[in-house]
Amino acid sequence: MTDVAKGLQAGLGYRFVDSMVLTRALTHRSAGPAHNERLEFLGDSVLSIVISDNLYRRYPEATEGELTRCRARLVRQETLAFVAQKLGLADALTVGQAMGARGSADHPGVLADALEALIGAVFIDGGYAAVVLVVEGIFAELLRDIAPESISKDAKTALQELLHKQGLSLPVYRVVLMRGEPHLRQFDVECYLPATKGRFSGQGASRRKAEQEAAQRALDACA
Protein backbone atom coordinates (compact mmCIF):
# COMPACT_ATOMS: atom_id res chain seq x y z
CA MET A 1 0.00 0.00 0.00
CA THR A 2 1.36 3.42 -0.96
CA ASP A 3 2.15 6.18 1.52
CA VAL A 4 -0.58 8.30 -0.10
CA ALA A 5 -3.18 5.58 0.54
CA LYS A 6 -1.97 5.22 4.13
CA GLY A 7 -2.23 8.97 4.63
CA LEU A 8 -5.74 8.95 3.19
CA GLN A 9 -6.81 6.25 5.64
CA ALA A 10 -5.32 8.27 8.49
CA GLY A 11 -7.37 11.26 7.38
CA LEU A 12 -10.50 9.11 7.30
CA GLY A 13 -9.76 7.62 10.69
CA TYR A 14 -10.39 4.20 9.19
CA ARG A 15 -8.09 1.37 8.09
CA PHE A 16 -9.40 -0.92 5.37
CA VAL A 17 -9.44 -4.65 5.97
CA ASP A 18 -9.73 -5.37 2.24
CA SER A 19 -7.23 -3.17 0.40
CA MET A 20 -8.79 -4.12 -2.94
CA VAL A 21 -11.99 -2.30 -2.00
CA LEU A 22 -9.96 0.83 -1.35
CA THR A 23 -8.08 0.40 -4.63
CA ARG A 24 -11.34 0.20 -6.58
CA ALA A 25 -12.73 3.26 -4.79
CA LEU A 26 -9.67 5.22 -5.89
CA THR A 27 -9.81 4.11 -9.54
CA HIS A 28 -11.51 6.47 -11.97
CA ARG A 29 -13.37 5.03 -14.95
CA SER A 30 -10.76 6.53 -17.29
CA ALA A 31 -8.18 4.11 -15.83
CA GLY A 32 -9.96 0.90 -16.83
CA PRO A 33 -12.96 -1.38 -16.28
CA ALA A 34 -12.36 -2.01 -12.56
CA HIS A 35 -13.45 1.52 -11.66
CA ASN A 36 -15.32 3.13 -8.77
CA GLU A 37 -18.71 4.04 -10.26
CA ARG A 38 -20.68 1.29 -8.50
CA LEU A 39 -19.15 2.32 -5.19
CA GLU A 40 -20.01 5.93 -6.02
CA PHE A 41 -23.65 4.90 -6.51
CA LEU A 42 -23.67 3.19 -3.13
CA GLY A 43 -21.76 5.93 -1.34
CA ASP A 44 -24.19 8.60 -2.53
CA SER A 45 -27.06 6.86 -0.72
CA VAL A 46 -25.02 5.98 2.37
CA LEU A 47 -23.80 9.56 2.73
CA SER A 48 -27.35 10.87 2.44
CA ILE A 49 -28.73 8.64 5.21
CA VAL A 50 -25.80 9.30 7.57
CA ILE A 51 -26.06 13.07 7.11
CA SER A 52 -29.87 12.95 7.41
CA ASP A 53 -29.68 10.96 10.64
CA ASN A 54 -27.07 13.30 12.12
CA LEU A 55 -29.07 16.42 11.26
CA TYR A 56 -32.29 14.89 12.62
CA ARG A 57 -30.66 14.20 15.98
CA ARG A 58 -28.56 17.37 16.08
CA TYR A 59 -31.41 19.82 15.39
CA PRO A 60 -34.61 18.50 17.05
CA GLU A 61 -36.45 21.79 16.52
CA ALA A 62 -35.65 22.17 12.81
CA THR A 63 -38.46 21.77 10.29
CA GLU A 64 -38.43 19.25 7.46
CA GLY A 65 -37.66 22.00 4.97
CA GLU A 66 -34.75 23.31 7.05
CA LEU A 67 -33.28 19.82 7.43
CA THR A 68 -33.65 19.19 3.70
CA ARG A 69 -31.83 22.41 2.84
CA CYS A 70 -29.05 21.59 5.33
CA ARG A 71 -28.57 18.16 3.80
CA ALA A 72 -28.55 19.59 0.28
CA ARG A 73 -25.86 22.08 1.32
CA LEU A 74 -23.72 19.33 2.85
CA VAL A 75 -23.93 16.77 0.04
CA ARG A 76 -23.69 19.13 -2.95
CA GLN A 77 -20.75 18.81 -5.31
CA GLU A 78 -18.91 21.88 -4.03
CA THR A 79 -18.97 20.64 -0.43
CA LEU A 80 -17.90 17.11 -1.32
CA ALA A 81 -15.02 18.45 -3.42
CA PHE A 82 -13.94 20.65 -0.49
CA VAL A 83 -13.88 17.66 1.87
CA ALA A 84 -12.04 15.57 -0.73
CA GLN A 85 -9.40 18.26 -1.14
CA LYS A 86 -8.81 18.39 2.62
CA LEU A 87 -8.26 14.62 2.57
CA GLY A 88 -5.79 14.90 -0.33
CA LEU A 89 -7.98 12.60 -2.39
CA ALA A 90 -6.78 13.90 -5.77
CA ASP A 91 -3.26 12.62 -5.08
CA ALA A 92 -4.59 9.15 -4.27
CA LEU A 93 -6.75 8.75 -7.39
CA THR A 94 -5.75 6.51 -10.28
CA VAL A 95 -6.84 8.08 -13.56
CA GLY A 96 -6.26 7.39 -17.24
CA GLN A 97 -3.18 8.80 -18.94
CA ALA A 98 -5.06 11.40 -20.99
CA MET A 99 -7.05 12.60 -18.00
CA GLY A 100 -3.94 12.80 -15.85
CA ALA A 101 -2.12 14.81 -18.50
CA ARG A 102 -4.91 17.39 -18.45
CA GLY A 103 -4.78 17.65 -14.67
CA SER A 104 -8.45 16.68 -14.41
CA ALA A 105 -8.09 14.58 -11.25
CA ASP A 106 -8.74 17.65 -9.11
CA HIS A 107 -11.88 18.69 -11.00
CA PRO A 108 -14.71 19.25 -8.44
CA GLY A 109 -16.97 16.68 -10.10
CA VAL A 110 -14.25 14.03 -10.13
CA LEU A 111 -13.36 14.69 -6.49
CA ALA A 112 -16.99 14.64 -5.35
CA ASP A 113 -17.63 11.33 -7.11
CA ALA A 114 -14.45 9.83 -5.66
CA LEU A 115 -15.42 10.84 -2.13
CA GLU A 116 -18.80 9.14 -2.55
CA ALA A 117 -17.02 6.03 -3.83
CA LEU A 118 -14.71 6.11 -0.82
CA ILE A 119 -17.68 6.34 1.54
CA GLY A 120 -19.30 3.42 -0.27
CA ALA A 121 -16.08 1.45 0.13
CA VAL A 122 -15.98 2.07 3.88
CA PHE A 123 -19.57 0.84 4.13
CA ILE A 124 -18.72 -2.35 2.20
CA ASP A 125 -15.53 -2.97 4.17
CA GLY A 126 -16.61 -2.04 7.69
CA GLY A 127 -20.40 -1.75 7.78
CA TYR A 128 -22.76 1.00 8.82
CA ALA A 129 -21.24 1.76 12.24
CA ALA A 130 -17.83 2.30 10.65
CA VAL A 131 -19.10 4.58 7.90
CA VAL A 132 -21.05 6.69 10.40
CA LEU A 133 -17.83 7.38 12.31
CA VAL A 134 -15.99 8.24 9.09
CA VAL A 135 -18.66 10.57 7.70
CA GLU A 136 -19.28 12.33 11.00
CA GLY A 137 -15.52 12.71 11.38
CA ILE A 138 -14.71 14.21 7.98
CA PHE A 139 -17.85 16.40 8.05
CA ALA A 140 -17.51 17.35 11.73
CA GLU A 141 -16.68 21.01 11.19
CA LEU A 142 -19.33 21.47 8.52
CA LEU A 143 -21.99 19.76 10.64
CA ARG A 144 -21.08 21.90 13.63
CA ASP A 145 -21.18 25.19 11.74
CA ILE A 146 -24.32 24.72 9.68
CA ALA A 147 -27.37 26.64 10.95
CA PRO A 148 -30.76 25.36 9.70
CA GLU A 149 -32.57 28.66 10.21
CA SER A 150 -30.01 30.63 8.20
CA ILE A 151 -30.09 28.58 4.98
CA SER A 152 -32.42 30.13 2.46
CA LYS A 153 -34.49 28.13 0.02
CA ASP A 154 -32.75 27.16 -3.19
CA ALA A 155 -33.71 29.03 -6.34
CA LYS A 156 -35.83 26.23 -7.85
CA THR A 157 -37.88 25.85 -4.68
CA ALA A 158 -38.32 29.60 -4.25
CA LEU A 159 -39.41 30.02 -7.88
CA GLN A 160 -41.89 27.16 -7.66
CA GLU A 161 -43.43 28.54 -4.47
CA LEU A 162 -43.66 32.04 -5.95
CA LEU A 163 -45.45 30.83 -9.08
CA HIS A 164 -47.75 28.56 -7.06
CA LYS A 165 -48.68 31.47 -4.79
CA GLN A 166 -49.56 33.55 -7.84
CA GLY A 167 -51.63 30.74 -9.34
CA LEU A 168 -49.30 30.40 -12.32
CA SER A 169 -48.04 27.31 -14.12
CA LEU A 170 -44.85 25.76 -12.76
CA PRO A 171 -41.55 26.15 -14.63
CA VAL A 172 -40.35 23.62 -17.17
CA TYR A 173 -36.65 22.75 -17.32
CA ARG A 174 -34.87 21.16 -20.26
CA VAL A 175 -31.27 20.45 -21.14
CA VAL A 176 -30.37 22.46 -24.24
CA LEU A 177 -26.80 21.25 -24.61
CA MET A 178 -24.28 18.92 -22.96
CA ARG A 179 -20.61 19.65 -23.57
CA GLY A 180 -17.35 17.97 -22.64
CA GLU A 181 -16.29 14.44 -21.77
CA PRO A 182 -18.38 12.37 -19.30
CA HIS A 183 -16.15 13.16 -16.32
CA LEU A 184 -15.97 16.88 -17.20
CA ARG A 185 -19.52 17.45 -18.42
CA GLN A 186 -21.00 20.93 -18.72
CA PHE A 187 -24.76 21.47 -18.98
CA ASP A 188 -26.72 24.28 -20.61
CA VAL A 189 -30.29 24.33 -19.28
CA GLU A 190 -33.35 26.41 -20.08
CA CYS A 191 -36.04 27.36 -17.57
CA TYR A 192 -39.32 28.11 -19.35
CA LEU A 193 -42.20 29.92 -17.62
CA PRO A 194 -45.44 29.03 -19.46
CA ALA A 195 -47.42 31.92 -17.95
CA THR A 196 -45.09 34.64 -19.22
CA LYS A 197 -43.38 32.67 -22.01
CA GLY A 198 -40.09 33.73 -20.45
CA ARG A 199 -36.97 31.68 -21.12
CA PHE A 200 -33.93 31.79 -18.83
CA SER A 201 -30.64 29.99 -19.31
CA GLY A 202 -28.21 28.47 -16.85
CA GLN A 203 -24.90 26.66 -17.08
CA GLY A 204 -23.13 24.32 -14.70
CA ALA A 205 -21.02 21.22 -14.15
CA SER A 206 -24.19 19.29 -13.29
CA ARG A 207 -27.77 19.46 -14.49
CA ARG A 208 -28.91 20.44 -11.02
CA LYS A 209 -26.45 23.33 -10.81
CA ALA A 210 -27.44 24.59 -14.26
CA GLU A 211 -31.15 24.40 -13.35
CA GLN A 212 -30.51 26.37 -10.16
CA GLU A 213 -28.73 29.10 -12.11
CA ALA A 214 -31.56 29.30 -14.64
CA ALA A 215 -34.15 29.40 -11.84
CA GLN A 216 -32.27 32.21 -10.11
CA ARG A 217 -32.34 34.26 -13.30
CA ALA A 218 -36.07 33.63 -13.60
CA LEU A 219 -36.55 34.69 -9.98
CA ASP A 220 -34.58 37.88 -10.56
CA ALA A 221 -36.80 38.68 -13.54
CA CYS A 222 -39.96 38.09 -11.48
CA ALA A 223 -38.80 40.33 -8.63
Results as ranks from 00 to 15, higher is better:
L39G: 01
D53C: 02
T63I: 04
L26E: 10
S52E: 15
A34D: 10
F82P: 00
R71I: 05
T79R: 15
L39E: 00
E64F: 14
R57K: 14
R69C: 00
T79F: 05
V83P: 02
E66N: 11
S45I: 08
S52F: 10
D18L: 02
F41K: 07
Y56D: 12
L74E: 02
L80V: 05
P60R: 06
A34P: 00
S19K: 12
G13M: 04
H28A: 08
D18G: 03
L55I: 15
Q77C: 05
L8R: 13
L89W: 09
A25K: 00
R15T: 07
L39I: 03
G88W: 10
R15F: 04
V83S: 09
H28L: 05
E40D: 08
D53P: 00
T79K: 14
G65W: 13
F41D: 09
Q9G: 03
E40I: 04
R57A: 10
R29P: 00
T79G: 10
R76P: 03
H35S: 08
A10S: 14
L67G: 09
Q9I: 02
D53A: 14
L80K: 08
Y59G: 01
C70D: 04
L42G: 00
L39V: 02
S30P: 06
T79W: 00
P33E: 11
A90C: 02
A62N: 11
R38G: 13
G32W: 06
Q85K: 15
I49P: 03
T68H: 12
G11N: 13
D91Y: 12
A25V: 10
A81H: 05
R71S: 07
L67S: 09
V50P: 02
A84C: 11
R38K: 13
L8V: 11
L8H: 13
A34W: 06
S48M: 06
S30Q: 07
A72F: 01
T23E: 11
G65R: 15
R58T: 11
L87C: 01
E66K: 09
L42T: 07
S19L: 13
P60K: 08
A10Q: 13
K86L: 06
V21C: 07
Y14S: 06
L67R: 15
M20Y: 11
L67W: 06
H35E: 06
S48E: 14
Y59A: 04
L47G: 01
P33D: 10
A25N: 01
Y59N: 07
A34S: 02
V83Q: 04
F41E: 12
G13K: 04
R71P: 03
A31L: 08
L87T: 00
G13Y: 03
K86A: 12
M20I: 04
L39P: 00
D44T: 13
A90Y: 03
M20D: 14
T63C: 09
H28E: 10
A34T: 04
Y14P: 04
D44A: 08
Q85N: 15
R29I: 04
A10R: 15
T63A: 08
R29H: 09
A72S: 12
E66F: 06
S45R: 15
E66A: 07
P60S: 05
F16V: 03
A72I: 00
R58G: 03
D53L: 11
N54V: 08
E66T: 06
L42H: 03
T68E: 12
V83M: 08
Q77F: 00
P33A: 10
N36F: 03
